[in-house]
Write a protein that binds this DNA or RNA. Structure first.
Lengths: 127, 127
DNA sequence: TTAAGTGCAAAATCTTTGCAAATGT
DNA sequence: ACATTTGCAAAGATTTTGCACTTAA
């Protein structure tokens, strides 16, 4: 079961992520492939790619789901790159950060993953 | 301008948060006040209370906005309690954590706020 | 060949808006 | 009194579903 086929839709989506190493919201992605691919397909392709560990997602402050390419070593079981993300509140761009954030252990809890989203102004918008 | 009136709707919502110190999603809150208050009002009351710094919000992994009561010292300008949240992936409960997480400084970025969401199994669901 | 993937239209969710009526101070 | 708040109905926006058709392996 479940290998992701290299369809036209999959390729199109992956090309977008490879063009710039930058996160995109689902809505933005749907916009980018308008005319080429149905929005339903976009949702489904993103789901599959995330399951396979090719991309990962997180929730932006705007309440939308954002996706970005995964680093090497990701898999469906463990996203090694569950890194923090930075979203600019002015231009809305999202960057994946390679910061190592230490979270203290929680007693009596089993922590599976950590989502960290920093909000502020990016380099371009700071000036 | 802008003081939050102590209306029936405001009181109802605050009572819910004071009953248990636990975060709730908007959808859950709307459910809880069904018959008593219109959903539009729920959205508006939550907005106002958040602006006044009485409650704070964050985005759950489910894509919904979650709200919880603020600690002392919160205001509309600075939410002192921008603490991490823990959401159980089994029972969906959300807890506010009083963890101090250090985020390394980012060069050329202005960081205004930090959202941290831990996902896993809560104490009750661990057993 | 045939399981996996796609498009389309329609439904389901969640959120916002406009406006007239009600309410708090 | 009168600015705020509320309910309701309607519109927007995002996401999911069902099903017939197409495509990659």
């Amino acid at each position: 079961m479940g290998i992701v086929r290299k369809t036209k839709a999959v390729t199109t989506v992956l090309n977008i992520f490879e063009a710039q190493n930058e996160a995109k919201s689902v809505v933005r992605l749907i916009e980018l492939v308008k005319g080429v691919m149905n929005k339903t397909t976009v949702y489904r392709v993103l789901d599959r790619l995330e399951q396979e560990g090719v991309i990962h997602s997180f929730n932006g402050r705007d309440g939308l789901k954002w996706y970005a390419k995964c680093d090497e070593g990701c898999s469906s079981h463990k996203h090694l790159d569950s890194h923090p993300h930075f979203q600019c509140t002015e231009c809305d761009k999202v960057e994946c950060l390679s910061l190592d954030v230490k979270i203290p252990k929680l007693k009596n809890h089993k922590v599976d993953s950590t989502d960290i989203l920093l909000l502020g102004q990016c380099e371009a918008c700071c000036s």
